[in-house]
Design a protein around this nucleic acid. Structure first.
Lengths: 343, 343
DNA sequence: ATGAAAGCGCTAACAT
DNA sequence: ATGTTAGCGCTTTCAT
């Protein structure tokens, strides 16, 4: 079985008896091809099973590829975003590729850089740990939309949730139930650096503000953890060994599941410690779980991010900042357990 | 802010006062560069912040990109595989890109094709719905490893779980508990076509065989569904309206969660209908869920797939077929409920 | 409407 | 050890 070399535009041109330029025009639907020519070329393409090499196209024009950088592929909220992004691309010539980072810090830069090196026509970056400067420079070369982070720039578009509002919803809900010993379980200090615009930074900041405003400054307790469920489980376990709060507000659902697991390992039920998450991932609504959480339309965010990219590719230059409204899904959270009856 | 064009190998060569070939050799760690030269070139690369364009490299040699095609990005088992794959790539020059298909049928071919068009140096395809012929042709051009499907070929490597053994574990477990009215909830007929080698095809085939061998041929009941939790929920709901089985063996955990959700909506507890899944996804072990499931080391599979690809790139030509052993995680499954006491 | 030809940024023979 | 040079498969002026 001879390993036949894949057909090139040259082969198609020869087969159809036309020039390479003509073939190129046909595959790009460019202006200036007669119906007759189009037909012959199309037939030749069929016959030879020709597929344009993306690398060669990318050298001159576009790669018809959009990249999305994800901090952590295990987080269902991110996969929701991807599902939305993918849906927005259905029927277009573009293909979505995902570059997973899966480690805190520098990995995000690496992944985004890898995307840029592959000459994608646009990049959506999910709350990466990079400086606005770095991002602006990148956005100068290729359209970029930042998803999640709140810092703005005229160089790139943003799609965000209203994290201040989401956190307000959570805190007021817990206050109304009567909680005051509320722990906030969140990511590393690097991630939540004040002013970074990172969603977790805002949630933390607002947690602090609401605790103080409610007069619970003395009950403020921030616990740091990593980026996956297992890290959250371990850090919650450590927390519980010290002092058991009445409620835990967790930075996102994936981490909340780790906290819930720790609670259960510690013999604590959700009636004893209320847990509230963020993202309203599918399993959160699962009857046996029933996690109270802040919903933000992930699919819509992903879809919107892609649209913004496509518009930039079409030529738009003024930045657009899109925001989705969060809503609180109240589920298992309850009033704090009354103090142990004495004697 | 002048939009300065990114540095090319030419710029680096000029800056370092050497030839392009020299720079090329340095970035590829190729043979034949003096330490002095290497140093000057490295300095120039730093100074100009040079990054090789992948498209240009791909036109001559390799793209240093490995692609993975995923049927459905929402399935946590697949993301486990990706995590393993990504881990195997850490420290190498290769970057992983994911092409999500997210729809049954033709989409898999599209996604794999898109990967090939992008000249990736290797492709791992997760149980795609394509003919062995098509795959062999592809494998002739680029290293391929099929993950999940059991059909073999000398053209490509495979990484599989032992689905016959996994299913045996499930069925014997259910038989031992005393079940005989066991429904099998699985994917479409297209996916489970006999002889396709698809994992779901094997699980179905073995379900049928074990039911017959146990003398329960009359209780065989196969229900078809789509590829996500929601589809499974709907189809299970329909099933329950007809006749309630004592146990449901579901093709994978994601679908099992849909079935569990339907059960709970129908007011049925897991004590009344035992559900067994496949893949032992993280949440399956979650206390409030506690889904009995077949474990197959997803990370290990992803990691192995990448290794096989890398070996092929290094020049290996004999095919390797790697299999991982499944084990049953027994959790919530119970004996069938005794018949309703009469009067 | 069509074609000829230059060139995108690399790598790999091949010289030196 | 280092440099020269010929392409890889496309897109895109620019002629015709």
């Amino acid at each position: 079985m001879a390993q036949t070399r894949a057909a090139t535009i040259e082969d198609v041109a020869r087969e159809a008896g036309v020039s390479r330029a003509a073939v190129s025009k046909v595959i790009r639907n460019a202006y200036g091809v007669s119906p007759a020519m189009r037909e012959r070329v199309t037939a030749a393409i069929e016959a030879l099973d020709y597929r344009p090499r993306v690398a060669a196209r990318a050298m001159r024009g576009s790669s018809f590829t959009l990249g999305i950088e994800m901090p952590h592929i295990g987080n269902p909220f991110f996969t929701k975003i991807v599902a939305g992004a993918n849906a927005a691309l259905a029927g277009t010539d573009y293909q979505l590729i995902i570059a997973p980072a899966d480690v805190d810090g520098e990995e995000g830069v690496r992944a985004i850089g890898a995307l840029a090196d592959r000459q994608v026509d646009g990049i959506v970056a999910i709350s990466p740990l990079v400086s606005p400067d770095w991002l602006e420079r990148l956005a100068g070369r290729v359209p970029v939309v930042m998803l999640g982070r709140h810092d703005r720039s005229t160089a790139y578009d943003t799609v965000t949730g209203d994290d201040a509002e989401g956190t307000r919803l959570v805190m007021e809900h817990l206050f109304e139930l009567g909680h005051r010993r509320i722990v906030h379980l969140t990511r590393s200090e690097e991630v939540t650096r004040p002013g970074s615009g990172n969603p977790h930074a805002i949630r933390l900041e607002q947690y602090l503000a609401h605790m103080r405003a409610a007069g619970f400054a003395d009950d403020i307790r921030v616990v740091r953890t990593g980026l996956d469920e297992e890290a959250a489980r371990l850090d919650t376990l450590a927390l519980l060994d010290e002092r058991v709060p009445t409620a835990i507000f967790v930075g996102n659902d994936e981490l909340a599941f780790g906290a819930l697991r720790a609670l259960s390992e510690h013999g604590l039920s959700s009636a004893e410690v209320s847990v509230v998450g963020y993202d309203d991932v599918d399993i959160a609504s699962y009857p046996a779980i029933s996690l109270t959480s802040v919903n933000q339309a992930g699919e819509a965010m992903g879809e919107r991010a892609i649209r913004l990219l496509l518009e930039r590719i079409e030529g738009r230059t003024e930045p657009i900042h899109f925001s989705v409204e969060p809503s609180l899904k109240v589920r298992n959270s309850t009033r704090p357990a009354p103090a142990e009856p004495t004697g």
